[in-house]
Design a protein around this nucleic acid. Structure first.
Lengths: 179, 179
DNA sequence: TATTGTTATACTCTATAACTATA
DNA sequence: TATAGTTATAGAGTATAACAATA
């Protein structure tokens, strides 16, 4: 099966090139996670939002946006939709009347739980072609590569939206809002 | 260094999840390749086009589009730009007056050569954090995972454009045009 | 003066349809 | 009737700017 025409490419077959292999696999994996999440009515970025919010309820949109690496402008639409889905609520912020305190609904907490299970299944299926003993090996090797290259959770495909504002920000840093 | 706040995520830290690790790394790698290719005046899809054309000069736009997994509509713009860059030429096709036979210029052949070198360097740098002996290990492990999941060069991020036409195609198959 | 949330706008990308000339 | 190349258009996604309320 599969038409391996890669040998026509410049000496090294494409699938023997680490970079090509990694980027191809990475995209396929991201796409598949998106599909697995779809039945829950969530896109990856929305799952990430809910998951980040779960241990930090009451956060402002701005601080959540910072944590996710998205711009606050994009945050508005995300929260709009999640609110329509009955997953988050915007409440007045106790310490800052400009801000909205975000809260999860009970339904959302269930969804986050299910989302993590989907991720667990995805992870398990992903490496199912390898021997039990080999799985921690790849993860460890990949992790070392990722660390050496400064890959952080923040740079994730799903979270890649508008994160760099050119607006006039003098301090350049917003502080955490507790509780 | 790096603020590892991943431990806040549902039991398993994000960077310990194979799927998250792979998709994050994959995106970063793809982005970096794009950057490394930029000085050549090439985007990945254009490099792929030239590289595919190199051992198959005289191909029609349609057959090249099929090989790359892009739609022929998108092909037009790509070839337009490559022609403006003085990298490809559209000549009359010897056997089919509807088609254009694509040919590389001498400059393009040099660029393809340089592009492959960029890819080689990228591959080398990518795994430089690992021991010599570990590098073929990751590649082998990843390749087995990729094969088990049916990941082919065709599904590459760079090549992901409009490949599914809904137009009326009865036979659904175009034949190769030699020489 | 700076920041939060919001809205509107512009810009890029991609997908689809439709046209022409050939087959 | 089907296919190669082309063009135009529509839609999604993303980035930027600007505004009102509040700090």
């Amino acid at each position: 099966m599969s038409d391996h025409r890669d040998s026509s490419e410049g000496g090294t077959p494409a699938m023997a090139r680490p970079a090509f292999l990694l980027s191809s696999l990475g995209l396929q994996v991201a796409d598949e996670f998106t599909e697995r999440l779809r039945p829950l009515g969530l896109e990856p970025i929305k799952f990430a939002l809910l998951a980040h919010l779960e241990p930090a309820e009451g956060s402002s949109q701005q601080s959540l946006a910072d944590a996710l690496g998205v711009h606050r402008n994009a945050m508005v639409g995300l929260v709009d939709e999640l609110e329509e889905q009955g997953l988050v609520q915007r409440r007045p912020h106790p310490h800052d009347r400009r801000a909205k305190a975000l809260h999860l609904t009970e339904h959302a907490r269930e969804l986050v739980e299910r989302g993590y299970r989907v991720a667990d299944e995805h992870d398990a299926d992903l490496l199912s072609a390898l021997e039990e003993s080999e799985r921690p090996q790849v993860v460890s090797l990949l992790r070392r590569v990722a660390e050496a290259r400064g890959v952080s959770p923040r740079g994730h495909p799903c979270l890649t939206q508008n994160s760099g504002s050119v607006e006039q920000t003098s301090t350049g840093r917003a502080d955490e809002e507790p509780e």
